[in-house]
Structure formats: structure tokens, C-alpha cells
Simulated assay, not measured.
Amino acid sequence: MYITSGNKQWINTDGDITVNKGEAIFCKKGGYHVRSFYEEEFCALLFFFPEEFIRDTVLEYQEHLKMFNSSLLDFQMLKMNIDDNLKTFFDSSMMNLLQLKDPSNLLLKLKFKELILQILTSSANPKLAAYFMSTLKEDKVNLRKVMQDNLMANLTLEEYARLCSRSLSSFKRDFQEIFGMAPGRWLRENRLKMAKMRLLSTDENINDIAFHTGFETTSHFIRCFRKQFGLPPLQFRQQNCA
């Protein structure tokens, strides 16, 4: 999303990102809280990419592209660096689309490919470029997607492994390679991040937050939250939302 006027704030387990006029944000598929500001009219240019389209574009131009550090992949949303080429692309795209009542599918496809290639051939957004390149490794991308899409589901590791079409041992091995930690720890830490976000941005009660963030019981949630953040969730909310 490229902002042409106004601003918004995106909130998820990564934290919060405020995007203003002339800035852009990339969000992977998932759940986000969005805070709107009404001092100025909001307008933005949005591009929605199916993962298959990204992968097909990377495959088409693979021999001309460099690889990026796969350790940069662990994000759900990021604020993009807008260099001169990207700014020119966004501004010209906005002008072209405003002038055309019904742009052809071929033109739109070329514009989407151009944006992907702008990211892949520049050093301005290495995390996003690494994510685009990672779509070539379909199995690992699928594991990551399954985990992120089902973070809040109260599933066993065996059930997660089945969702990823792996044995439990291969699931744990591949998970460690992709996320750099054991699956149980990753699930606990990310569920607690989401619970913290909901405590600070909603009026949900503690039982509902525990349920919606994948904890078996409220008491288990409270114990884990206190261990992670030093306070039980209700007291944490009272101290940080005063």
C-alpha cells in the first residue's frame, strides 16, 4: 500500500507501524488491527499479489536476479524504503490508473510484474526481496504460511505437522531451520505478542483474549503472560492503558 494522502497505523504481533503520505507498507496475509486518523482524507494505492504470481515472476527472471539472505524473512509487515525509482513507479501508476476507466488485464499484469522487479533489482528493501525469492522454495513457504495462518488455533504439534504434510520429526527439523527456534517456543511467544496487542488495543476480557490467542485455559495464559512480561495481564493493561 502506497499512501497518497492521510495516514494510518497497522498493529499486529510485529508491533505497530504508522504510514504517512509518500510512504508505503507491505503486509503478508494475516490479521491486523488498523487505526485510522481523521484529520486528513485518506487515499492509497493498493497492490494485491497472489503468492503464485510472485513465484511465476521470480521464475521468469530468475537468471537475472541475485539471492537475498533468508534470515530476513521473519516478518509479517514492514515499512518500505521508497527510493526514487519506487516513488516514480507509484506516482506514475496512480496517474495512469486515474486516467484509464478500464485498464486492460495485460497492462495491470505488467505493472504488477514491474513492481516486483523494482523490489528484486534494488537494494532498498532486502527483506521484501528475500521474501519474494523465498517463494521458489514452496515447501518451506507453505510451512511458514500454515503456522502463521493457524497461530491462534489450539493444535498439538502432531496436528501442525499433519497440516504441513510432514512427519513430526521432519516438521520440527524444518521449523527450526526456518524460524530458528523450537515450534512450542515460537507458538508461545507469538501468541503472547498477540495477547499483549489485544490487551492494549481492545476492551476484551481476559478469558476471551486467552481463548482467541490459542491458550488452553485462562490460568495457563495468565502464568505464561506473567512469566514473559513480569505482570499478570489485567495489571499489565491497567498500567499501560491509563
Rank of each mutant, 00 (worst) to 15 (best):
Y2P: 12
Y2G: 12
T4G: 14
T4S: 07
S5T: 12
G6A: 14
N7M: 07
N7H: 10
K8D: 00
Q9M: 01
W10H: 07
I11R: 12
T13Q: 10
D14F: 11
D16A: 06
V19N: 07
I25H: 09
I25V: 11
F26G: 04
K29H: 03
G31M: 06
H33Y: 03
R35M: 06
R35C: 06
Y38S: 03
Y38G: 03
Y38P: 05
E41W: 07
F42N: 11
F47P: 12
P50V: 09
P50M: 14
P50A: 15
E51I: 04
F53E: 13
F53I: 11
T57H: 11
V58A: 14
Q62W: 14
E63L: 09
N69P: 02
S70P: 14
S70N: 10
S71E: 04
L72K: 02
L72N: 08
L72D: 10
L73R: 03
F75N: 14
F75Y: 05
F75V: 10
Q76G: 07
M77K: 08
K79G: 07
M80Q: 08
N81Y: 07
N81F: 10
D84H: 01
L86C: 01
K87N: 13
F89K: 12
S93F: 06
N96F: 00
Q99A: 13
L100N: 00
D102I: 06
P103K: 00
S104G: 03
K109Q: 12
K111P: 11
K111G: 06
F112P: 07
F112I: 13
E114L: 08
I116T: 13
Q118C: 09
L120V: 05
T121Q: 06
S123P: 08
N125I: 03
N125A: 00
N125E: 10
L128M: 00
A130D: 06
Y131D: 04
F132Y: 08
M133S: 09
T135G: 08
E138G: 05
K140E: 13
K140N: 12
V141M: 15
R144F: 09
R144V: 02
K145W: 07
K145T: 13
D149W: 00
N150S: 09
L155M: 11
L157S: 02
L157F: 09
E159L: 11
Y160K: 05
S165A: 12
S165M: 11
R166N: 13
R166Y: 14
S167D: 10
S169H: 10
F171R: 03
F171M: 00
R173M: 06
Q176A: 03
Q176W: 02
E177M: 05
E177G: 05
E177F: 05
I178W: 11
I178R: 09
I178L: 15
F179L: 08
F179R: 04
G180T: 02
R188E: 13
R191I: 09
K196W: 05
M197N: 02
M197K: 01
L199T: 01
T202E: 10
T202F: 05
D203Y: 06
N205L: 04
D208R: 04
I209L: 04
F211M: 04
T217I: 14
S219H: 08
C224A: 15
Q228E: 09
F229N: 02
G230V: 01
L231M: 01
L231S: 02
C241P: 03
A242H: 11
